[in-house]
Design a protein around this nucleic acid. Structure first.
Length: 610
RNA sequence: GCCGAAGUAGCUCAGUGGUAGAGCGGCUGUUUUGUAAACAGCGGGUCGCAGGUUCAAAUCCUGUCUUCGGCUCCA
């Protein structure tokens, strides 16, 4: 058994032990499922009116330790399904009963597979006759296993939190209480994991957003509507400009569209009924119904449609940094990761079918350039169609497009996974997944083909024979959502932005407040601004130690401490932020220093060359 | 939206029925500082909001808004 399998068995066993403990404390508990998850396990429990709170954790953990100390063996046995059902009924476990019924009917308990089963896909021979049980002490549970040999061999654990979860994830179902725990083979590993969580908390973008003065929320403005301060806006602008430059090099042209439209636009595009989270805008003056745009493609399509296009004009590529608005469910909002005003570096290219491959290839090149410079880890997910009939558009074009997407990934040697059946109804796509500070994956960049909107909007071009043809639309975003990207990027860098992104690149701090010092500081500031650098002066009446501490806390890349020494020599000795420092800082003429920082910013390097 | 928790000064938090507090930040003054916190003083809060209970509410109750941890969905 591999270490990984062993750990999984331990975690799964702990889920049973936790359920056992809960059963001891609340004998009326009805159990749902108790699987292994990343770093630990959970169990869904229905206690009716009784609410478990975090104060109960100690009690539950104590009960679990007692079970662990008894070192009960995990004994596996099989029962015919019918007898298992009797067991579930006798023990008043309706959820287990439901699972058993599913097993008998479809051979699986996975809700996802069951949807298929209802459609008549997998069934028949997968039905089971015997089901597996595990018993430890007085606790017996329907379970496929595997388990640790005994309750004493389950490693180190800690209960983490309690949360509501719907039975089988369906909103209409009863809500159960989900008890989460983390577990590792050794105490040391558990401690390391808990330390990692503490570290991750420190770089939480919401916390850093306040500490570094990047963005804020206002109850009056509304939830999910971030307001960016000057510093935060600098970061946004740098990222958006970077994206824009990459796209301009790829032949994209900037356009501009309003943020509302007649609802009719989205009725034609087909999005109207598919977007219950749309924001409506009423108007007294007009009978038309208006809405905030929940996406940009319909607007962009109307720029394309504004005149007749020749096959020679294609590809036509529009790009825009713009904001869309979605009334996301209240409980879903999360810092900058999930907001209601979503800014995107969105673009739409209108191409001939024979240009699909080249366009996709060029986009993948931009993605690679961008994420290499940003220093983020990523991989691609290719979403293709399956055999079902939910897809719209010509099957031949689908095949060509899917082949092109695959080839681009292989030719450019991009690490990727494939999701058969994950394609949108309008076309296949590649999503770029980026990992954040907590190891969570976020979708950032995306390139998607769309065969449906050109159809719905009647987009055309005239081919070389004078016939009307339908272009294909390629949706693309490099950063994806700027807000979400910033949340990932802030956590990735822990607020230590590279010089080209840093809101404040240089801080100049005076040693004293004598006129000569202040004059020299002013001169340096002017010089820095001439070099296109973002500079902040600190002439405050504070000790040098305090000023350094302040600059460090603000995570400023370079700091100049200016006093008599600097005035006399005309040289500066930069104090370099730890992560940028490759060698001891050296005194140099200030012009050289500013030139060097400017070059570092211009070339968008993430490491200092000083 | 649902389940659970929380909301006190710009930030971090103390205060559990009887006159709203601390540290940091801010402002003013003293000091004129050399590589991670000089000293002193002064400001600053309808205790998220609205009702209710009470002689009296930050504290108890109800509603509501926002935030946090999850569920579900998603850029």
């Amino acid at each position: 058994m591999s270490d990984q399998d062993k750990l999984k068995a331990q975690r799964h066993s702990l889920a049973h032990i936790m359920a056992y403990a809960v059963q001891t404390l609340w004998p009326e508990a009805k159990f749902g499922v108790g699987p292994v998850v990343e770093n630990g396990f959970y169990y869904d429990i229905d206690l009716g009116e009784t609410k478990i709170s975090e104060e109960d954790f100690k009690k539950i953990e104590t009960a679990m330790r007692q079970i662990i100390n008894k070192d009960y063996p995990f004994e596996q046995f099989n029962l015919p399904v019918k007898e298992a059902l009797d067991w579930a009924k006798k023990n008043k476990q309706p959820y287990k009963e439901e699972l058993l019924n599913d097993l008998m009917r479809a051979g699986t308990t996975s809700a996802k597979d069951l949807d298929g089963a209802e459609l008549g896909l997998p069934s028949g021979d997968s039905k089971v006759e015997d089901v597996s049980f595990y018993k430890c002490g007085d606790f017996t549970d329907l379970c496929r296993g595997p388990h640790a040999p005994s309750t004493g061999k389950t490693g180190a654990f800690k209960l983490m939190r309690i949360a509501g979860a719907y039975w089988r994830g369906k909103e209409g179902n009863p809500q159960m209480q989900r008890l989460y725990g983390v577990a590792f083979d050794t105490k040391e590993q558990l401690a390391a994991h808990l330390t990692m969580l503490e570290e991750a908390k420190k770089r939480d973008h919401r916390k850093l957003g306040v500490e570094l003065d990047l963005f804020t929320f206002s109850d009056l403005v509304g939830p999910g509507l971030p307001l960016f301060t000057p510093r935060g806006t600098t970061i946004r602008t740098q990222l958006e400009t970077f994206s824009q430059e990459l796209q301009q090099a790829g032949g994209y042209e900037r356009v501009w569209i309003p943020h509302i439209s007649r609802s009719e636009l989205y009725k034609v595009s087909g999005h109207y009924d598919k977007y219950p989270e749309r924001f409506m805008v009423s108007s007294i003056e007009s009978d038309d119904e208006f809405m905030m745009k929940p996406m940009n493609c319909p607007h962009h399509s109307q720029i394309y449609a504004s005149k007749s296009r020749s096959y020679r004009d294609l590809p036509i590529r529009y790009m825009e940094n713009t904001t869309i608005y979605r009334d996301e469910k209240h409980g879903e909002l999360h810092g900058l990761s999930r907001v209601r005003a979503i800014s995107q570096d969105d673009s739409h290219a209108f191409v001939r079918p024979d240009q699909i491959k080249d366009e996709l290839s060029s986009i993948m090149g931009m993605v690679r350039d961008m994420y290499a410079i940003l220093g983020l880890e990523w991989h691609a997910v290719l979403s293709l169609r399956d055999d079902s009939d939910k897809y719209l558009g010509d099957e031949k074009i689908w095949k060509t497009a899917e082949k092109a997407l695959r080839e681009v990934l292989i030719e450019q040697n991009v690490e990727h996974t494939i999701g058969e059946g994950d394609a949108a109804f309008y076309g296949p796509k590649i999503d770029i997944m980026v990992r954040d500070g907590l190891g969570r994956e976020w979708q950032c960049a995306t390139e998607q083909l769309d065969f449906v909107q050109p159809e719905r909007f009647g987009l055309e071009y005239i081919d070389e024979k004078g016939n009307k043809q339908r272009p294909v639309m390629v949706h693309k975003a490099l950063l994806g959502s700027v807000e979400r990207f910033m949340s990932v990027y802030i956590e990735h860098t822990a607020g230590r932005f590279p010089v080209w992104v840093a809101p404040e690149q240089i801080r100049i701090s005076s040693v004293n407040q004598e006129k000569a010092t202040l004059d020299f500081v002013a001169k340096l500031r002017e010089e820095a601004i001439k070099h296109d650098l973002r500079v902040v002066v600190d002439n405050g009446n504070e000790s040098v130690g305090k000023k350094i501490r302040d600059a460090e806390k603000a995570k400023v890349p370079y700091m100049l401490v200016v006093g008599e020494k600097e005035i006399e020599s005309g040289d500066v000795t930069p104090r370099i932020r730890g992560d940028l420092q490759v060698q001891e800082p050296q005194a140099m003429p200030y012009e050289n220093f500013f030139k060097s920082v400017r070059n570092e910013a211009k070339s968008r390097v993430s490491r200092s060359s000083l």
